[in-house]
Design a protein around this nucleic acid. Structure first.
Lengths: 159, 159
DNA sequence: AGCAATTTGATTGCTTGCAATTTAATTGCT
DNA sequence: AGCAATTAAATTGCAAGCAATCAAATTGCT
């Protein structure tokens, strides 16, 4: 029998790349980012900036923390990103007079108008996918996200 | 009727965050990265470095390009990452004598041994998931990845 | 009121990730 | 052989992400 040493792996090896769930997610996210990139660049947005705009188009004004809760990001990521969006003229940032700890992010007129140019992005990107496939995939991954998001407070459990 | 202006969105609006497929993927990847982080840190690896190790544990020696093809990454990402892994002592990098353009990445003894400590990472991370769910999710996302990966050469098509 | 604990963002330092460009080696064509 | 086109990796410059830490405002408790 070919009992291979140390670095080699059998069919049932848990460390095979093709057995990881995380890897396809990682790869899909990178590939999608690359696909969205050029399309969004025409609007002057990056992909995470586009996500921030989606949230703001739904609500208009949000604190940094609320944006972060929605997108699963923290201020370490959002603060510099929002500064760039402010520099680009899409949003303003100002301390909440009611609670000076909070910073309120608000759409500018330019940011509101941008929505009209963004309206065709989803269909441009969907490009050839059957809606059913997209819907079921989205729900599966969303399920995963909601489970993962809970893990935050829990102890390491098994190990 | 509440016909809302500009920035507001209706139920069927394609720009609602909750209608995007890309967003759950993005969120799941970030959350997974955060979960893997502390576990892999004990091994001295980051998440993408762990993926490189998975590939090398399967094959032992790979050119930068082959690694990139497997992980959907290019040399702009891999070169500095591999340099850090070399500095950490897990791999060596050397020009291929047969074709000096290529750089061969090889596991060191330390890199091979690391596999034994990594062997429990998958089960530690899976932690409470039913295998069936994981399998079907993985296949769905993998399907998406293989479609996305083809898009590279194709024209923008719709728009 | 007074002060510790908490909450909210900002900052720092580091690692990805990517587009665009550059450099070196190889292939192909004549 | 000689030279243009191609290929592989490295480099540059920038935008995320994140852990850890810091600073300021608010809450809660006595």
């Amino acid at each position: 029998m070919s009992k291979v040493v140390a670095t080699q792996a059998g069919e049932d090896d848990p460390l095979l790349l093709d057995r990881q769930v995380c890897f396809p997610l990682y790869a899909a996210t990178n590939l999608l980012n690359r696909l969205y990139g050029p399309v969004l660049a025409k609007l002057g947005l990056t992909y995470p900036q586009y996500l921030v705009m989606l949230v703001l188009w739904e609500h208009q004004m949000q604190s940094v923390g609320e944006l972060g809760a929605r997108l699963y990001l923290d201020s370490g990521t959002l603060t510099p990103l929002l500064k760039r969006m402010e520099a680009a003229g899409f949003v303003t940032r100002a301390r909440d007079p009611v609670d000076e700890r909070r910073v309120l992010v608000t759409l500018t007129a330019e940011g509101k108008v941008l929505r009209e140019r963004a309206i065709h992005v989803p269909e441009t990107m969907a490009n050839g996918y059957r809606p059913d496939d997209v819907d079921s995939l989205r729900e599966s991954v969303r399920q995963l996200v909601s489970t993962l998001a809970q893990h935050k407070t829990r102890p390491p459990a098994t190990e």
